[in-house]
Nucleic acid binder design. Structure first.
Length: 422
RNA sequence: GUGGAUGUAGCUCAACAGGUUAGAGCACUGGGUUGUGGCCCCAGAGGUUGGCGGUUCGAGUCCGCUCAUCCACCCCA
């Protein structure tokens, strides 16, 4: 009989890794809270239409990467491939623009995209998302990017860089689109088949192409930065000024375009060279028309997403933090009476707040001690018939290799003082 | 969706050109100390060589199919 495996591209997060995940998540919560953000959690399943309208019909995500299925009444539902659309949906649905002053949100959770898995890319993956609605000030754009960088720095990721660009507003983009299209059509025969398609559908995306001949053609292509309108340009300049004031290092990448249709003006990515083919740790940008497109008030928005798995991958080869069992107490029980008494004692210690494990099997003292050692326990409590008859236990400090006798009544204060001082 | 690589013990890998009973290190269990960890020594357990089929006197090894994983394309977090 074949054992059942997890679904392709959907991975278990095992206990050894959990410490890293919690570390990153808790750090995110703490920092976002400090900046005035509130956590929000939305369902993992939404009506398919939310994403087709929100992300854009012509994007790869919508065209071929969504987990879409029918429910029992024939409605089309989809496992969320990203979070922004859901958060906006919730914001509109609960009329938060009139009912509350809350406009800054973060969400941590799983997303789903049906792609072929590879390093740093999975079918179920986790994102940390940040979204702000109702403010279109460049100051906020800068602060949002600062926040993303601050978080990565505080969890210890150094070798990442921030790339920014402006994609203009819908007005300047339409005219630039034509200019770019005209340029690209001159070289139509040399462009790869994909780019030949993109020239008509979404010429901006040709900038993402990695085919050598396309790269060369694009290297001389007009850049949107040279064509954005005055107001977009002013916005972009101010964003840069605020970034400098916040001491955020960045580079302008005029060839960066993002894969989701809704971005306008500020777009950014945080990239690294240590993730194989996946170089983005996170990315985001402004999406001023999106809330209105989804049937809500005409409020601007900006946000970003960070890829948890990618962060964890980077964290793993840089800072190696080890599981901390420094506070654990392991009970070594010798003989039937000791096993019965020790079992009760373990529960008592747990109720006092100690982290306690014990040997459930009747094994030799040596093997129980070995187990205590392997688990990294700080203290061992050794209980045998001799000790029981005298109302005491042996207490062993596994780090210092010292051992002494303690009255059972004195055990709790004794343990407390040892564990507190270390 | 396309291409490439790899599947042998829990892990990392061996096994000459097809040839007995598929090995080693680490990990695991027990012992060396009638009740004491890490180091050391001894012993033990653990495999339908991913699966199915084919060639052959004989297949871990060769062939076909299939499944899985990884990497890359594509795209993105």
């Amino acid at each position: 009989m074949q054992p059942i495996q997890s679904v392709k591209g959907m991975n278990d997060i095992l206990p050894e890794e959990i410490a890293l995940w919690r570390f990153a998540e808790e750090k995110a919560r703490e920092i976002f809270q400090r900046f005035g953000y509130s956590e929000i959690r939305t369902p993992i399943v939404e009506k398919t239409e939310l994403f087709t309208r929100g992300i854009g019909e012509a994007t790869d995500i919508v065209e071929k990467e969504m987990y879409t299925f029918q429910d029992k009444k024939g409605r089309s539902l989809t496992l969320r491939p990203e979070a922004t659309a859901s958060i906006i949906r919730a914001y509109i649905q609960h009329q938060m623009h009139v009912k509350s002053h809350q406009k800054k949100f973060y969400l941590i959770g799983p997303m789903f995209r049906h792609e072929r898995p590879q390093k740093g890319r999975y079918r179920q993956f986790h994102q940390i998302n940040v979204e702000v609605f109702g403010i279109d000030e460049p100051m906020l754009d800068a602060e949002v990017m600062f926040l993303a960088c601050l978080f990565l720095r505080e969890i210890g990721l150094k070798e990442v860089s921030l790339e920014i660009n402006s994609l203009g507003c819908p007005n300047c983009r339409i005219s630039f689109r034509e200019i770019l299209q005209e340029y690209l059509l001159q070289y139509q025969e040399s462009l790869c088949p994909d780019c030949n398609r993109r020239v008509y559908k979404n010429p901006l995306r040709c900038f993402d192409c990695k085919a050598p001949q396309c790269k060369e053609i694009l290297s001389n292509a007009p850049l949107i930065l040279d064509f954005i309108c005055d107001s977009c340009n002013r916005h972009f300049q101010e964003v840069q000024n605020f970034l400098r004031e916040l001491n955020v290092e960045f580079i302008i990448n005029g060839r960066m375009v993002r894969g989701l249709d809704y971005y306008v003006k500020t777009a950014f990515e945080i990239v690294t060279e240590h993730l194989g083919a996946q170089n983005a740790v996170g990315g985001g940008g402004r999406y001023d028309g999106l809330m209105k497109d989804l049937g809500g008030p005409d409020l601007p928005g900006i946000g970003f997403a960070l890829g948890m798995e990618r962060i964890i991958l980077l964290l793993k080869d840089s800072a190696k933090l080890q599981q901390d069992n420094n506070q654990m107490i392991y009970c070594v029980l010798l003989g039937d009476r000791a096993r019965a008494e020790g079992f009760k004692l373990a529960q008592k210690l747990r109720s006092e707040g100690f982290i306690v494990d014990l040997s459930y099997e009747d094994r030799s003292a040596k093997s129980q001690m070995r187990t205590a050692n392997k688990m990294g326990a700080r203290m061992a409590i050794i209980i045998g018939d001799d000790e029981l008859s005298q109302g005491v236990v042996q207490l062993r400090d596994m780090h210092r290799s010292s051992q002494w006798v303690v009255e059972i009544e004195e055990l709790v204060p004794e343990l407390r003082s040892i564990l507190n001082e270390s």
